[in-house]
């Protein structure tokens, strides 16, 4: 990459890094995994930097992040899917109900299979429609709907244990 392009890329990462990391964090549930995911997506973006329209770079990085995340899930599924049908009891810290709910929900989100978590993040953090989520993840709207439904059921179940 030419020095001027590197400077431009670094500026982009400085401006958008925190936002991308938040999505990565919501997707993976772990700061370290989020950094790995964002870094990998940025590395792949850097490879195509010369050809990318600058107005669409942010969307492109997020697209790569979702694909990377779901690809990881597919590889995992081929070996052995590790879903947790019943959430274990979680000890709640003292504090307000809302804080407790968020903590439980955070834990429940972490336990979702990656694809279900991706659907939830796209729907409720990025505010995309089912159709747009399907486009991003390369699956049918029916799959998005069923994945969202399963995920929401798990999250609600986790919350009912607190409320």
């Amino acid at each position: 990459m030419e020095p001027s392009a590197e400077a431009e890329f670094t500026r982009f990462v400085t401006e958008r890094g925190a936002s991308l990391l938040r999505i990565g964090y919501a997707l993976t549930g772990s700061r370290a995994a989020a950094e790995d995911l964002v870094q990998t997506a940025l590395a792949k973006t850097a490879l195509k930097w010369r050809r990318l329209d600058r107005r669409g770079v942010d969307a492109y990085v997020r697209q790569v992040m979702y694909h990377e995340h779901v690809s990881w899930w597919r590889r995992l599924r081929n070996r052995r899917e590790t879903t947790v049908p019943e959430l274990p009891e979680t000890a709640l810290p003292d504090g307000t109900d809302a804080t407790a709910l968020r903590l439980v929900l955070t834990e429940a989100l972490r336990r979702l299979p990656p694809r279900q978590r991706a659907v939830i993040v796209l729907r409720y953090l990025e505010d995309l429609s089912e159709h747009q989520v399907a486009e991003r993840l390369g699956c049918s709207t029916g799959t998005v709907a069923s994945q969202a439904s399963r995920a929401l059921t798990k999250l609600r179940t986790a919350m009912e244990g607190v409320a």
Binding site: V13, T14, E35, T45, T106
Partner: peptide, 19 residues
Amino acid sequence: TLEGFDGTQPPVELASRAL
């Protein structure tokens, strides 16, 4: 909750590591 996955600034060397 999803918005709360925040408060973490990216490492300063993120761009150079990605490059």
